[in-house]
Every structure is written in C-alpha cells, then in structure tokens.
C-alpha cells in the first residue's frame, strides 16, 4: 500500500527570495498519527500548504496516497481534508451552510451532504449551532467547524495546522479524543502544533523542522530515547543558599528562585543517585518535578543546534 504522504526534495522559494524549504524529505505511512514540529517560520505551514494545494512548490515531488501532486492533483485533493491554521470560512455564513457547501465542492449530492454534515457537526458538538452565523462562534467552536468541514467528504488523510491553538484545555482534550478515535478508524492524521505535550500524547511518529530542513524524524519514543538529558527542579524543606559541589559538577545544578535546585540527569545517571547526594548533604527534598517535558527539551535542543 502506498504511503499516505511522500515528500521528496521539496523546495520552496517565495517571490521575495525567501527560501522556506531547502529540499525536505518526509514520509508518513498509512494510518499514522504524525506530528510536524518546528518553531515559527520553520516551514511547517509551507510544507502542508504545498501538500494542500494552497502554496505552489518551487521543485520536488509530493505524493499523497500514491497520487502525484503534479499529474494527479484532483485525486490528491480528494484524498485530503485540510484544517488550516487561520479561520478561512465566510464568517457571515451559517455553520450548516459552510459544511454542506464544502461537501458540494467535492461533488456530494445535497441529501448526502446534509446527512454527513449532521453526523460530523453532532460529533463535534456543533449541531445546536447549525443555524448560527460562523462569526458568532467561540474560537474553539470555529476550530471544530473547520474540522467538520474538512471531514465532510470523508478523506483518507486529515491535515491539521495547529488545530488546538487558542482553545481551552477541556476542549483541547475533547479534540484529542475525537482525533484519536478518527485515527483508530483508519484516517491518517498529520498535524503541526506548538503544544509539544499534544504531539507526545497523540503522535507515535514525528518530524522536527527548522529553517527549512528536517532536523529529526522517526518514532517519537525512539527520538526521546536518544535524548540524553532531562532537567528537574527540586524543592526542599529549607531554602537552599549554597550548592554542594558534587551536585554542580555531576548534575549541573544551579540555584533557582525560592531556594530550589535545578539539575540535569544524563544517560546512565539515576534519580536515586541524586537523592543519595541530597541525603549526603542533609538536604530534605519535599518535591521534584520535570522542568519541561522531554519532547520540549528535545525540540529546543535540536532547533537551537540548527540555528
């Protein structure tokens, strides 16, 4: 079976001369839940924009479900559902009209379009708002409307560009459940996000893009396994004013505000050893927490290295 997405040597140079993509290669297998991560301006949206036919590529090849973007664009478009980063519907149209209208563009007869629209609007808790003008919806509802619209022709691959940007935690988690279920039913999902927790929770595979280059790609667990440094912050019964030299030399410890200690562990070091060091110096730890999640650290490390 063909891969859901195959990008080869993709280059994009904008009219103003800015080179957004330097010949990237990317493969997403069928049924995957894939994250494309990167800082602002790294080339995430440009890559997905090219795949979605919203941006013209300069060179390279893109295949979606085995269909070539240049010679089989119509089949590529039929395979994809696209949820862009910015709201891109007519704000004066009603919710139901927006979804049914989009179904029409994919050739779905009106009766079927209405049935599908009802299904997805209900699944995304928007059915009660079907006769409301889109401009009256909250930010979270607008995002869900774009997901319903992208699914109305039941695409094999769903592309989401920062789908949970600006939505509250409760809605974000309900969207995660929805997307997980959709993926479980066989839809390949490719998303970009700035919430690295989101990528770590949802996506078994990911790629990190920086300055128009893919700087890491593979299974999320394997990438995190390769990461050899984790940062923690420990709080103590008494405020710490002086650091034991062993903690500084072995664990890169520094004092942080409030008398706590920030330290790193590398591959081969255990937290038990750190606690032993605390005991040795009569430091009574009352809590310890990761400073950032591991993916966030990996992301920062890799994107900083690429600069």
């Amino acid at each position: 079976m063909a891969n859901a997405l195959e990008i080869s040597n993709l280059v994009k140079v904008y009219d103003n001369g800015f080179k957004a993509l330097n010949g990237i290669d990317l493969t997403v297998p069928q049924g995957d839940f894939f994250a494309l991560l990167g800082p602002n301006g790294a080339g995430k949206s440009t890559s997905l924009g090219i795949v979605s036919s919203l941006v013209n590529k300069t060179s390279g090849t893109v295949k979606v479900n085995g269909f070539d973007l240049d010679s089989q664009r119509e089949q590529v478009k039929r395979s994809l559902g696209v949820v862009p980063q910015e709201f891109n519907f007519n704000a004066f149209e009603k919710v139901l009209d927006i979804v049914v209208q989009q179904a029409g563009y994919y050739g779905l007869p009106r009766k079927l379009a209405l049935t599908r629209a009802e299904t997805y609007l209900k699944q995304l808790d928007l059915w009660e708002k079907r006769d409301t003008a889109a401009r009256m919806l909250s930010g979270g509802m607008k995002r869900r409307l774009m997901i319903a619209r992208a699914l109305v022709h039941e695409p094999k691959i769903l592309i989401l560009d920062e789908p949970t940007a600006g939505v509250d935690i409760e809605i974000r988690r309900s969207m995660w459940r929805f997307l997980n279920e959709l993926n479980r039913q066989g839809t390949t999902i490719i998303l970009t996000t700035h919430y690295l927790e989101e990528a770590e929770t949802l996506c078994p595979n990911l790629a990190i893009i920086g300055k128009g280059n893919i700087i890491a790609q593979g299974p999320t667990k394997a990438l995190l396994k390769d990461k050899d440094r984790s940062t923690f912050v420990a709080d103590f019964t008494a405020s710490i004013t002086e650091l034991p030299p062993t903690l500084v030399s072995d664990y890169g410890a520094t004092l942080v505000e409030g008398g706590s200690i920030e330290f790193h562990t590398r591959q081969g070091q255990t937290l038990n050893e750190v606690f032993a060091c605390f005991n040795e110096h009569d430091l009574e730890a009352i809590s310890i927490r990761p400073k950032t999640n591991r993916l966030e650290e990996l992301f920062v490390d890799l994107t900083t290295e690429s600069e």
């Binding site: 979605s52 119509e74 039929r78 007519n90 994919y106």
Partner: peptide, 10 residues
C-alpha cells in the same frame, strides 16, 4: 480566505 475552500477541493 474562504477561497481556500475551493482551492483545496477538487
């Protein structure tokens, strides 16, 4: 940007 509804569709 609602023209994108048409641009992404076949």
């Amino acid at each position: 940007k609602s023209i994108e509804e048409l641009l992404v569709s076949p």
